[in-house]
Every structure is written in C-alpha cells, then in structure tokens.
Design a protein around this nucleic acid. Structure first.
Lengths: 227, 227
DNA sequence: AAGGCGTAATATGTCGACAATCTTGGTGTT
DNA sequence: AACACCAAGATTGTCGACATATTACGCCTT
C-alpha cells in the first residue's frame, strides 16, 4: 500500500518502503516519542543503505514526525498539549476550507460515494460497539474524502501528506476511545448533508465544530492522563 | 543567509547552499518554469555531488517548486491561473488565521517593531515611487513578521517554508508592479492597527481582504498578459 | 569533588561507482 | 506510412567508503 493513497505512484522504491515502516513505527509508538534516531541502527534494522534511509528521514521531517538538526541527527517528535492545540488550530482552519470547497467542487458521484461510506460506517459501528480503532480509521477515511473533494492540490498535500500522520500519532498514543464515536458519526452525517446541499458556508462551520469537539475530546483524555 | 530566516541553523551544509541557489534560480526564472531537472547537470553546475543535490531537490519538492516522479526525474513547476487561485485560497485562510493569532499572541515589543517596519516602508516607498521590487520585499517582510507573531510552529512552517517561495515565484515571474503598492501599504497599516488593538477578528478579516485583493491584482496581470 | 580540556569514538555529510529503470532512436513488420 | 518492438544511451536509485562535525569519556587542574 502506498503512503499517499490519493496519488498513483508508479514505482515503489526502497526509500518508500522504509518510510512506510518507520512512519508506522513512530505513529504507533514502537519507536518512542522523543527518542533519538540513529541512522546506522535504522539502516541495519530495515536492511537498507543510508541513502534511501536519509530520503525517508527527510520525508518524515516533512510530516513533522521527526525533527532534524544539521550535523546532530534527528529525534522523534515529542507530543505535548501545546503541540496538539497548534495542530488542531490548523486542522480546524484547513479542513473547514476543504469542506467548503468540497461543497462547491465535489462531483455528484463522489457525494454519493461519501454517503455510501457513512452507511457502511453505521452498520460496522453497530456491530463493533465501542471498538475505537475501526471508527478512527473510518473517521480518517471520511475526512480524507472530503479533503480530496476540495480539488485543491496544495490543501490536499498539506492535510493528507504533512499533517495527518501526526494527527494519527496523537490519536493512537493518547488512546482515543469512548462515547465520542457515535456523536462523531452524527456530525459526519450533518456535514455530508451540507455538502450534498452545496451549502459551503454551513459545511465549513460544521466541520470546524466537529474538529473542535474532537480536539476537546483529546484534551480531556490528556488531562485525565495527568491524574 | 539562511533559507529559513526564522530558524537559527547551526551549520550551513553544502545541501543548504545548493538549495538556496537553485531556489533563487527557479523563483527568478533563470531555471525556466516547466523545464526538466537533470541531476548530473545541476551537480556539475553547482559543483557538488548528487547526494546533497538530491537532498536539496527533496526540499524543493517540499516547497512546491519542483515535482518529482520516481525513476523519472523532476520538473520545475509550471505556473497556471488555477495554481495561483489554489495557492491564494490557502494563503487567505492561513494568513487570516496567522493574523488572528498574532493579534492575540504577539508580545508588545514585536507589535512596536512591526510599526517601526511600516514607518520605514513609508519613507523608502516615497523615495522609490513605483519601484516595485522593494515594496514586494517589504510586503513579504510584513507578512513574515505577522506569521511569526502567531507563535504556531506548524503554521509558520507551512507559510514561510512551504508556500512563500512559490508565492514569490508567481510575483516575480508575473512582474508585480503598478498602483497597488500604495494601497497595499494602507492595508498593512490597518492590519497593524487591528493587531495593536488586539482585535483578532478584525485583523483576520482585513488580512483576508488584503490577500484577496493581491490575488485579484495578479489575476489581472495574468489576464493582461494574454492580450 | 566539580569543572574545563583534549582526545577517542561515533554519527552525520559527502563522494564516486554500480545497479535498476526509464527514455530515445532505430529496425522491422503490417 | 504507421505502429510495435528492441537495443543503446542516459538517468535515477542505491551502495559502501571517506571527510567532517559532534558527542562521550577520561584526564588534569583548582
């Protein structure tokens, strides 16, 4: 599977493969947040030379999963409440825009596919009540499609390539769960309705609220962790 | 000079230098838009090995100045009206947010420095009436400071590192000039006032309008070019 | 014992060469 | 003449090794 689901990449290079593996490892915490990255070690571990590894590191920096300083090496990013807030401030704005554009630009058949996706979520959600991961994946899927619907390549690149891995990292490592999943589903449905009605302004507003609610949810989680 | 004015980079590596040179060459058109990038040629031309060159290319892709396809090489981006609109849609949203955050977050002394910068622009503008480049540099400087004032690292990274070189490329290659400079100055002043009054909502609105006006200006330029 | 200094060890940046892939030009077929 | 196919050339991806910068450790000084 490609790391850029919206792009058809012709070739899968070694650097792509190692990027995908390290990316997953960081997001899921098997390479711990804040830890130092050693190029020789990772090169041995994933059985590649340092050349494709460094290419992968450059892309990891691009999506904010690691931070590099010249001649000094790279560290996995450390998660923090401030970072989360800064990230979600951006998401709110960007996805609001994406949602508005999607309401204006999305071709009819994509709107119908989005509706079908939500129906599918509904049934699978009923089956797996409380199992959070699936809903999370579904949530991301919904957001992905809306973003792609905006037809703005820069916006798509920023959200899907540069920000979403970090969003997933916060979600996974903070352990998203609980009663928010069903409410999130309702919010998705309302957003879809606005898009289907070509009401960009409302779609924008609803998406902002949806993300804002999601942020508050994680903040609570993060607060609860302190106690 | 560093390519990331807001970051103090400890070391200037060869890849940094060649990045800066190619970046300038692309923005100013001495490497033409749409042309193919040849790694061996550029390596000879800038007297480096392909390793730091490829690192530089990766960063050029990051700021949307080139487009790479695996095993097929890289091309300089081609400018288009659609691309311009997509870019400015994003700028409007992101800089609006930056401006609102700056109104809330900017420390008092930075606000005063920003005011001093505008005074400086006023005098230099009177002297060099009609000379557009300086005003453009000044315009970028103003926007840079507002963005930095937002204190949101992701936002700063996106605007200053990933979007602004492309914005400059459009401006330079479309040949910005004319009567808009003085109006832009007034708009800057109004934005500053809103920031100084800590009126984030107004600052946001004014910045959006400012950028929207700038976009229309370039679009006109682009339209005029057709005739 | 604490702190600065110099050296060794390690990591990163860069290089030149090889392997795999794509592109180009030519050839042959229909 | 147009198209498909094949081979040669060139380009990109990858590798291992060297140069340079940083880090870690032990030693000396106070």
């Amino acid at each position: 599977m490609s790391t850029h689901p919206h792009l058809l990449r012709r070739a899968i290079t070694a650097s792509d493969r190692v990027l995908y593996e390290i990316q997953s490892a960081i997001v899921e915490g098997s390479i711990p947040a804040g830890s130092k990255i050693s190029e020789p070690e990772l090169a041995r571990r994933f059985d590649v030379s340092r050349a494709p590894l460094r290419e992968a590191l450059a892309r990891l920096e691009r999506c904010h999963l690691i931070e590099r300083t010249p001649n000094a090496g790279a560290r996995v990013v450390t998660l923090s409440p401030e970072g989360l807030i800064a990230l979600y401030q951006l998401r709110e704005e960007l996805e609001g825009l994406a949602c508005r554009l999607a309401a204006e630009q999305m071709p009819e058949h994509e709107v119908q596919e989005l509706a079908a996706l939500l129906d599918q979520h509904l049934s699978s959600q009923r089956v797996r009540e409380g199992e959070s991961y699936y809903q999370e994946a579904g949530d991301l899927d919904f957001h992905y499609r809306v973003i792609l619907g905006s037809k703005n390549p820069y916006l798509i690149n920023m959200l899907c390539d540069e920000l979403y891995y970090l969003v997933r990292m916060y979600r996974v490592q903070m352990g998203m769960n609980g009663p928010r999943v069903s409410r999130a589903f309702d919010e998705h449905k309302a957003i879809l309705t606005a898009i289907a009605n070509r009401d960009g302004e409302l779609a924008d507003l609803l998406m902002r609220r949806h993300i804002s609610a999601s942020r508050r949810n994680i903040e609570q989680q993060l607060q609860a962790e302190k106690d």
